[in-house]
Design a protein around this nucleic acid. Structure first.
Lengths: 146, 146
DNA sequence: ACCATAATGACAACACATTGCCAATATGAG
DNA sequence: CTCATATTGGCAATGTGTTGTCATTATGGT
């Protein structure tokens, strides 16, 4: 059993590194719309259907407080709007404004271009297989994790 | 070409999620030593040989300022010590103190246990293959990236 | 040896995420 | 209906990372 500990560390570092690389790539892609990656993620979460702030947080896998602060900021910037929620008097449904959708639209071409080049360069079949393995790894970490 | 854009997004989200999961696991593992994951990483970087703060940063792939602040904190906590650097009068070499090594030692068993269980559950061959693909993906992102 | 350039440490401002706490509001079991 | 419990938004403190700036110190080409 050659060094499980070291192998685990190598895996962790590989994920951390890729996380940083993708964040940096996202910043560049989001720049033309003058928004940050976090704003992009929140706006993206409500493109298809309005959600409450805690609902967005659950979908993104981060805390509701983090989403709440970004949502407040996005509302102040006029990119997100709150509508009364019939199911929750205290928790309005959040949806992008026209400007919010415009911002996402301005990012889309660059994102599509980047994805296309990345997948082409990495190999489409291998790309899909990698995603599949990453999902399986997520499940495994949840099952095993300390 | 079915939706490269969506596939790219799915990949990014998978990496972000795993990043969060591994950070959370790391926090739990580091807790018995009362240190954070960032402290652990910095201490881990100088276990084998002393490095300067910018040297640690280059190895970790983050900015020297981020490392510097953590290093200053670790020195204040008595986990890291600075020794004169013959090659750089302004940039001391940083090495763990006895307490610093003790802290890492206290983490090691849990980390080894977690790694072993993770690799066993995921499959060793698949685990190694995944790391290899992640490295290849890092290279691809660097080559393609916006 | 000299001087432009690079590297380093310190400091500040900002973005993002976390935990913990509080008060107000839903929700659901009895 | 009532009351314990869960959810929600707001606020504060903290940790981690970034960029930018500044003064000081090395480094290297001429």
């Amino acid at each position: 059993m050659p060094d499980e500990s070291q192998l685990g560390g190598e895996f962790t570092l590989a994920i951390f590194k890729l996380n940083g690389q993708l964040l940096a790539a996202g910043e560049k892609l989001a720049e033309p719309a003058s928004i940050t990656v976090a704003w992009w993620q929140v706006l993206g979460a409500v493109l298809r259907q309005p959600l409450t702030a805690p609902g967005i947080a659950r979908q993104m896998g981060i805390t509701r407080q983090a989403v709440q602060r970004i949502a407040n900021r996005l509302i102040a910037e006029g990119l997100l709007q709150a509508s009364p929620n019939p199911a929750h008097k205290r928790s309005p449904l959040l949806a992008p404004t026209k400007d919010g959708r415009l911002a996402i639209e301005r990012i889309r071409p660059g994102q599509a271009e980047f994805s296309t080049r990345l997948i082409k360069s990495f190999g489409r079949a291998e790309f899909e297989a990698l995603i599949s393995e990453l999902h399986r790894m997520s499940t495994t970490v949840d099952a095993v994790g300390p």
